[in-house]
Design a protein around this nucleic acid. Structure first.
Length: 427
RNA sequence: GGAGGGGUGGCUGAGCGGUCGAAAGCGCUGGUCUUGAAAACCAGAGAGGCGCAAGCCUCCCAGGGUUCGAAUCCCUGCCCCUCCGCCA
């Protein structure tokens, strides 16, 4: 949620900045709504004041033992007028709130202009794309002997699911454990376990609602309950409606959850393999920090995600998302893209964002500034570190030996019973 | 699923038709004292909105209702706790 004061002060400036992310802000509508709200609010508050004053006078007269009948008679239809004014004001305020709720965050000044993925800006690359002297297979072919069973998944569930078997399932689990341990032991994150079903208030807090209801899986017959699209939602919302002890900042959580996405509107995109699934696992990093620390925190958090790729010896590049590719709540996002030999290109494996106070304002996550005692919004950040399924794909494709086997990166071996090689020929 | 008890400020918790936005304790902030800290003492401070300001308005889980007036009474919903049942 944007600061409405900033909008009131200079709607055109806000609109200009939103154009970087290809969002068109209707400033005329806002101004009209704001003018009406202002008038209605002051009228309603005048009526409220009058009621308060009169009622108080009646109370005082009564305590003195005087006859209150004439005073009560004087009140007349004040109550009715107040009720009517209040109802109109409530409607207007709700409309304004809805309007405000659907405006995305302002992109940071460093965010490049651009409408789509191709306009993202490469920042750096790491690792050497391995010279493969055979025709690399993609993960679907590598797992074709049953390790990655898309047909089984289609039978029990439908499209965009996978069944992993044997060594593939174990590798998936190993990757997860390895990543969580690294963040807890080396990067200073506190592990949390959270519900996979959340209420609407939580989805509103992180920005998935009201605008992106179609992208969520909603539990039928259970009012307002949704499967989480990412751990970001339950973890960040741990601090909804809270005034956090300043000593507790920065808060850093690592959380492993499945993620559920309807992928509405992505028909025909990435239909092969497990790049885009309705259900996938992710190890997520979430930070809540003091406002002055958030940009540094974004660099650090991105570094923590990068550290995983480096330990896994996976070549990758970092890109900064252009305005048009930026998520609703983010002020800036750095994506990590891993090299996939099977596709011959880089694919997103992590997305690290600074939301500034955008989410905090939606969920009233504050801390009390020492000294001044003023309540300030925290800044929130999160990033995948990493998406587990895509990491599995990257390991399989980058470490394939050309003979149906896959060597296991050093870092994962302790989690694979010490094995150095994966045999995918049978399950 | 059955029966009961609750939801009040950062936290605990009192209030149960009118100077109640709310006692008290803890925690917090400033001061006194101290070499410094702790303790003690004094003072301050709930959350949000509108307004240049003076100031005004809202908020005691949420939504309705009764009333001149609701934290307080009534209805509905949500959530929590205890006991019984069922259960990984």
């Amino acid at each position: 949620m944007l600061d409405i004061k900033q909008l009131r002060q200079d709607p055109d400036a806000v609109a200009r900045r939103l154009r970087v992310r290809c969002f068109n802000l209707d400033t005329a509508a806002f101004r009209a709504q704001e003018e009406e709200r202002r008038q209605l609010q002051s009228r309603t508050e005048r009526l409220q004041r009058e009621r308060n004053v009169r009622s108080k006078a009646i109370g005082e007269a009564k305590s003195r033992g005087e006859d209150i009948a004439p005073l009560v008679a004087q009140v007349g239809d004040l109550g009715e007028r107040l009720k009517a004014a209040k109802a109109k004001l409530t409607d207007l305020q709700e409309a304004q709130h809805r309007f405000l709720s659907e405006i995305p965050n302002l992109p940071d000044a460093s965010v490049p202009e651009g409408a789509k993925e191709d306009d993202n800006l490469e920042l750096s690359t790491w690792g050497r794309i391995p010279p493969i002297d055979f025709e690399p297979l993609d993960h679907v072919d590598l797992g074709a002997n049953g390790a990655l069973d898309f047909d089984a998944a289609a039978k029990v569930s439908g499209a965009r699911f996978v069944v992993m078997k044997g060594v593939a399932a174990r590798l998936h689990r190993a990757i997860t454990q390895f990543m969580i341990d690294a963040h807890v032991e080396q990067h200073g994150y506190a592990e949390v376990y959270v519900p996979y079903i959340v209420n609407s208030a939580s989805l509103f807090g992180t920005g998935q609602l009201p605008k992106f209801a179609a992208e969520q899986f909603t539990i039928a017959g259970s009012e307002g309950m949704h499967l989480i699209p990412t751990a970001e939602v339950p973890v960040t919302n741990l601090y909804r409606d809270a005034i956090i002890d300043v000593e507790a900042l920065p808060i850093r959580h690592v959380c492993h959850t499945p993620c559920f996405r309807s992928e509405a509107g992505s028909y025909g995109k990435d239909t092969r393999g497990m790049i885009r699934q309705h259900q996938f696992e992710k190890v997520e990093l979430v930070q809540l920090v003091r406002p002055e620390d958030s940009w540094r925190a974004l660099d650090e958090l991105t570094g923590h995600a990068e550290a995983i790729l480096r330990k896994l010896e996976l070549p990758y590049r970092t890109v900064v998302l252009c305005g048009g590719d930026l998520g609703f709540a983010a002020a800036k996002t750095i994506d990590l893209e891993v090299w996939l030999p099977g596709q011959g290109r880089y694919r997103e494996i992590s997305s690290c964002s600074n939301f500034l106070d955008f989410q905090a304002r939606r969920m009233m996550a504050r801390y009390k500034e020492a000294g001044s005692g003023v309540n300030e919004y925290v800044h929130t950040l999160n990033g995948s570190a990493l998406a587990v399924g895509r990491t599995l794909v990257a390991v399989l494709e980058n470490f394939q030996d050309g003979a149906g086997g896959v060597s296991i990166p050093e870092a994962l071996r302790p989690y694979m019973g010490g094995a150095a090689k994966l045999d995918l020929s049978t399950v």
